[in-house]
Nucleic acid binder design. Structure first.
Lengths: 359, 359
DNA sequence: CTGAAAGCGCTTACAG
DNA sequence: CTGAAAGCGCTTACAG
């Protein structure tokens, strides 16, 4: 039986080759000056023995766990998977794993979540803060992703510009009365989106803040969009795909044709927006880019934090190098055009594939 | 300045109190026999100094990271947040953190994800396998969550019973022609759900496998449900809320009243099912319970694995203690009843709150 | 280019 | 009940 049963360590590799553990360590990390031949033999033997470095030992010695935390305002938010995936990817690219924590839409739980992660020994934290909350100095590197209107923000999508994108598209289709639909007036993100929309042509739009459906099983009040349609509104521009689908089903159920008689647009480009019929025009964030920026800012902060190998991370004195806020542009995804703008014929549904967006 | 800037360690606490680190360690862990008075003083001093145990050191010494991995088939699956949250909760309850890995709907990436987690030093892994894949011996404790039809499964929802629940409800409403809608004939979960539905009354149902919408931006073919309706089908029983909403918008768009003329049901009780109008009747898994069972099985396996403090986890020889598969019953959430079964008047939409389910 | 040694912070037999 | 000591597996000055 040649296969080793136990996780080999550096000492065992060293013993096998009659070299020191220091040399093995150096060869494997490529740091120390080791002769190419020896390094080669060591690497070969290591992989042959199935060597996997013990993270705990490395972390103990270097003071770096190479794990970061991701604090999300609410895991049940449909956008969460995309965020989580983007952060995970960006972190993995630079050698970090991600521990996810859920603030459950509660500021005090958000604080707790941060503390829990710190106790877990993360090197830094990415926070998507609950709306209206501020991330205090936490004694550890931090990157914040929110709307550009949030103070202390690190990076975020340009929600205002996204709002302009979708509204100017609707106006270009010929709509003259547009109802803007939000459901959380305290959200910086929603306000930015609404603000961008309104800025295009304030005279043809009206804003409506719908009741928020927080929990499952509570359908909430109808939006009474049929009444709005009767008042002459032909476009319903919402701040989220969720709200858009609520609007869409209500309009369809009232016998109003979409997109023939009215347009519905969302935000975020969730899978749902392309699954409904007609599919929704929506606006998408460049999450991979946002995540990359956040991770870069965070890992920079981690590297520049006071910790040295011999003197690990100190509490209460680490600051970000005051990075400039980055605004990442959003992208319009057109899936509905009205009869006026599209070819007559078929169902007046026009789908623009991934290549066919414009900014 | 009294606040210590540096993370204190056991040695510093010990020095402050003129005791040994062993005593401090014992007092804090409650393990060793330490006199109550000393233990008290130590605990007080530790918290006053803001002591936080160094996980890396503990992990190195004990051979346990107290981190587990969660491998998911596809993070963009809308059910993922609920699963992640449930597992996280259940794991946190027993002192474990969770590292999430995404298989991106690809078997080889699933294997990679497992390996990555193992290299990260997790103590065990919970896998929700990609449909059709088998989890090989991975040399580490594992718990598998899938359908009961999946071999090697640890725990899962009773999808078959869930199918029976929703179908018998539809039949009780008076439907005589029911179209069952799935979109992945290779999925054990979907097959179980469909099987359960069919088993209720095979003569009144027909099964249709729709094209799967995998990527955003590709709306896919219409389901042509209006034709089915014309053939006399009055209930559309889908295997997922996603498919249900696709069906719902198509029916509404074709001028078919829901729920007055036709019923639509889903599976999973996602937020979306209560946001659309009319809200969807659906079936829900008891994810908290499933997660708890999975975590219990996993932590048992971890504790019984061959590793001892002095001889850490071995590779290739750890097995689960062949636990019996657990089937966790599902719950019906009724949100639509047809005219026949409900009071006349209003919109024939009846919502059953969380208290009002039945199994 | 290579190695001996110290030390990261903890836990755990073992001795007193 | 308390403490001295070893050791988990690594990395990193430092010496040769």
């Amino acid at each position: 039986m040649t296969a080793p049963r136990i996780r080999p360590n550096l000492t065992q590799i060293a013993a096998r080759l009659n070299v020191s553990v220091a040399t093995v360590s150096n060869a494997l990390s490529g740091k120390g000056r080791v002769s190419p031949e020896v390094a080669e033999r060591i690497k070969a033997t290591a992989s042959e023995m199935g060597y996997v470095p013990a993270r705990a030992a490395r972390a103990l010695r270097t003071g770096r766990s190479h794990v970061i935390g991701l604090v999300l305002p609410d895991i049940s938010n449909p956008l969460f998977p995309q965020i989580a995936r983007a952060i995970e990817q960006a972190a993995a690219n630079v050698g970090y794993a991600v521990l996810i924590a859920d603030a459950r839409d509660d500021v005090s739980m958000q604080t707790e979540a941060i503390e829990r992660l710190l106790e877990r020994g993360v090197d830094g934290i990415v926070v998507v803060p609950r709306r209206g909350s501020r991330i205090a100095e936490i004694g550890s590197p931090v990157a914040v992703i929110d709307s550009p209107s949030t103070p202390g923000n690190t990076v975020s999508a340009d929600h205002w510009q996204g709002g302009r994108l979708v509204m100017s598209h609707l106006l270009s289709l010929g709509h003259r009365k547009v109802l803007i639909l939000g459901n959380d007036p305290t959200s910086n993100v929603q306000n930015d989106r609404v603000g961008g929309m309104r800025s295009c042509h304030p005279h043809v739009v009206e804003v409506m803040w719908a009741e928020r459906i927080e929990r499952q099983g509570e359908p909430g009040q109808p939006l009474r969009l049929a009444e709005k349609f009767a008042q002459g509104f032909t476009a319903f521009a919402t701040v989220s795909d969720l709200l858009a689908i609520r609007a869409l089903t209500e309009l369809l159920g009232a016998g109003i044709g979409v997109p023939e008689q009215a347009s519905v647009s969302g935000f975020d480009d969730l899978l749902w927006s392309s699954v409904v019929r007609p599919a929704l025009t929506t606006v998408r964030m460049d999450l991979p880019l946002i995540a990359e920026r956040a991770i870069t800012a965070l890992t920079d902060a981690i590297e520049h934090s006071l910790a040295t190998p011999e003197r690990p991370l100190s509490f209460g004195s680490v600051k970000l190098a005051a990075p400039a806020l980055e605004r990442v542009p959003m992208t319009l995804v057109v899936r509905q055009t009205t009869a006026r703008a599209s070819d007559a014929g078929t169902a007046n549904i026009k789908t623009v594939q991934h290549g066919g967006r414009y900014q």
